[in-house]
């Protein structure tokens, strides 16, 4: 079989110019679907990213009573460290270190001059391998005589986890529905293209053009529509991303916003592939139903 890309591409564009309204509808739906998918994925990724950052920070702070003997502090630390299935790191912060930190954070403010002596407790800062385990760890530590109080960002972490889960699901479901609509629209556009060229197709079959020679232009047309839809979605998404990032940075200067560019490229790549798949599936559907070779 001879494969002449130029012939196929020429045929695809010809057919597009004939059925451009339905083709535009198909492309727009692909764009919409991938935009929704991309947006929710972007949000999920970003939140995930925050979580990874916060995970690396402290999740549980255990404040110790004053006057606990050093050996008890040591043995408590070893015990916590021995839970190494869940615990990533335990850092001891002495009363002096705590004061140092406070001084650093409020450098230049005269608030510190009001503090007399050192009212700050010593503490353990525990970071976890899996933030979802925080509850369990807290339960294990509760009631110990050495411990004055325990603080952990349970709600924040849980909310973040739930939020990303939800963002993913909402994104996947919406995007899935839209992708299905896009697929049907592409199939319809291809059906019209097949119909417009039915005489040529009949003659091609008659003179023995190979099945793939007949199918290729239509498959290509669907793929191009999917691809164009994906590219538009990616362009819009990058604009949205830039706008959001700017605003978030301004509002929440301390948060590690944004995505590592690697994830962003992965997302872009995934959207391109998704666009191509929607296009190919749409054409395949039309070819199966309307092009018997």
């Amino acid at each position: 079989m001879s494969i002449r890309p130029f012939y196929f591409i020429k045929e695809s564009f010809k057919s597009f110019s004939k059925n451009w309204i339905i083709s535009m509808a198909a492309i727009t739906t692909v764009t919409l679907s991938l935009l929704v998918l991309g947006f929710f994925m972007l949000v999920a990724f970003t939140v995930n990213n925050w979580m990874n950052m916060t995970e690396r920070k402290v999740e549980i702070v255990v404040f110790l009573n004053d006057g606990v003997p050093a050996e008890s502090v040591q043995s408590l630390q070893s015990e916590i460290m021995s839970w190494n299935d869940d615990v990533r790191k335990v850092t001891y912060v002495s009363k002096d270190q705590a004061l140092e930190r406070l001084k650093k954070e409020f450098k230049g403010s005269d608030m510190l001059s009001m503090i007399e002596g050192n009212p700050l407790p010593a503490s353990f800062e525990i970071s976890l391998k899996d933030p979802a385990k925080a509850d369990e760890i807290v339960k294990r530590l509760k009631g110990r005589s050495e411990i004055e109080s325990i603080r952990h960002d349970k709600q924040t972490v849980e909310r973040l986890i739930n939020f990303t889960k939800m963002a993913r699901w909402v994104g996947v479901i919406f995007a899935g529905l839209l992708a299905f609509a896009a697929l049907v629209l592409i199939a319809n556009a291809i059906r019209l293209a097949i119909y417009a060229r039915r005489r040529e197709i009949a003659i091609m079959r008659l003179v023995g053009a190979s099945n793939w020679f007949i199918r290729w232009p239509f498959l290509l047309e669907g793929i191009i529509q999917g691809l164009v839809g994906a590219v538009i979605a990616i362009a819009i998404l990058s604009v949205i991303r830039a706008a959001i990032e700017d605003n978030v940075k301004r509002l929440l200067a301390f948060l590690p916003t944004g995505l590592p560019s690697q994830s962003y490229w992965q997302l872009t790549f995934a959207l391109v592939i998704a666009g191509i798949m929607i296009g190919a599936a749409g054409s395949a559907l039309a070819l199966r139903r309307f092009l018997r070779v």
Binding site: M1, S2, R4, Y7, R199, E200, A202, I203, M204, L206, V207, G208, A209, S210, F213
Partner: peptide, 30 residues
Amino acid sequence: RNIGCVFQDYKLLPNKTAYENVAFALDVIG
């Protein structure tokens, strides 16, 4: 490709010349 077919209604492509109609048959089999 080894059987030529002729029909009552000619089955020519209206937007192609006589030459192009014939050439089409060779073109699409590569």
